[in-house]
């Protein structure tokens, strides 16, 4: 009897003391960031890191986007990487993805609104700039050739900053945790000796998930047409534009990608959002990243081993 009682107490308190994680939320990178962590993961430093990188990315974008033609911009090491990555994604997407898409999408009001259709003249001017004015690099500097050109690395910079945040957490001794920047997340280590369980949101119902995966030391990112979009004349204008058609991508409702780092997951989720099914199946083999696609008719397409992460 005494043993039973003792055991009961031990079990109760063991249950109370299993891996206890805290969640901390804050607003950064234009979205709600949630960090799941154990106490003392150096959160202040993590948040400062996120803000610093965000500032580096944003200030360069703003300077470039608001500058007159002929301005030139020195490229810091971070942006050197960002430009390099952007060409990788451009190639993978067969030119559908381009960081200069901002020249066009900003006319619609993206990313922050207010949203409306651009005038035909402005639309034509932006399309002309994107078609005929590639980014010009002179002596290691970016030169703005055309005033209408605007860039945004929003498609994968968020993921890269998540990776930087995770680095800082690990440096501070964190063995496990999740950094989730508005759905683009990296989960490292384990929780109670099992992998982290991550749900992919249903595009039409925030309380439902279309797939549940278990991951450890992996990133997941989702691109969809349901968070940043506006409706006009019954047509949905989402924030991801196809640079071969110059129209919003409308192949799928949402695309999720699992990758080894969040920058890749983030960037590729946009790339796959732009790729037709057959191309997607072929590209994911090359990148080695599982893909989940949710189509307009509610079909789930699982590519490159997505199933192996479910359950």
């Amino acid at each position: 009897m005494r043993k039973t009682a003792l055991l009961l107490c031990v079990v109760l308190f063991a249950a109370a003391c299993t891996d206890k994680f805290e969640k901390r939320q804050f607003y950064a990178m234009g979205t709600l960031v949630e960090i799941t962590h154990k106490k003392d993961a150096g959160l202040k430093q993590v948040i400062r890191t996120i803000n610093e990188y965000e500032e580096q990315v944003k200030s360069f974008e703003n300077e470039y986007n608001n500058a007159p033609a002929g301005s030139s911009f020195p490229i810091n090491p971070l942006w050197e990487v960002l430009f390099k990555k952007s060409y990788d994604y451009k190639a993978l997407s067969k030119d559908r993805f381009d960081i200069r898409a901002m020249s066009l999408t900003s006319l619609y009001g993206f990313p922050e609104g207010s949203f409306d259709l651009p005038s035909p003249e402005k639309y034509a001017a932006a399309v002309d700039a994107i078609k005929n004015k590639p980014l010009l690099f002179v002596d290691g500097k970016l030169v703005k050739e055309d005033e209408r050109l605007k860039i945004s690395v929003g498609a994968f910079a968020k993921g890269m900053i998540v990776d930087k945040a995770v680095e800082v957490m690990k440096k501070n001794g964190a063995e496990s945790g999740i950094v989730n920047a508005g759905g683009d997340l990296y989960a490292f280590g384990k929780k109670n000796k099992s992998r982290w369980r991550v749900g992919i949101r249903h595009p039409d119902d925030a309380s439902k998930v279309i797939s549940t995966i278990a991951i450890s030391d992996k990133a997941v990112a989702t691109s969809g047409d349901y968070e940043r979009f506006f409706m006009k004349n019954g047509i949905r204008y989402s924030h991801i534009f196809d640079m071969t058609t110059m129209e919003p991508a409308s192949l799928y409702r949402s695309v999720s990608v699992i990758a080894d780092n969040c920058e890749t997951a983030d960037g590729l989720s946009t790339v796959f959002f732009l790729l037709p099914e057959t191309d997607a199946a072929e590209v994911c083999k090359r990148t080695g990243t599982p893909v989940l696609i949710y189509t307009h008719d509610g079909r789930l397409i699982k590519l490159c081993g997505w199933e192996s992460f479910e359950n």
């Binding site: 989730n180 997941v220 990112a221 989702t222």
Partner: peptide
């Protein structure tokens, strides 16, 4: 109060 989406599935995070 801080409301969180119902977590009956025991999920640690949501990708959206």
């Amino acid at each position: 109060y801080v409301r969180c989406e119902d977590d009956d599935k025991g999920l640690d995070a949501i990708s959206r």
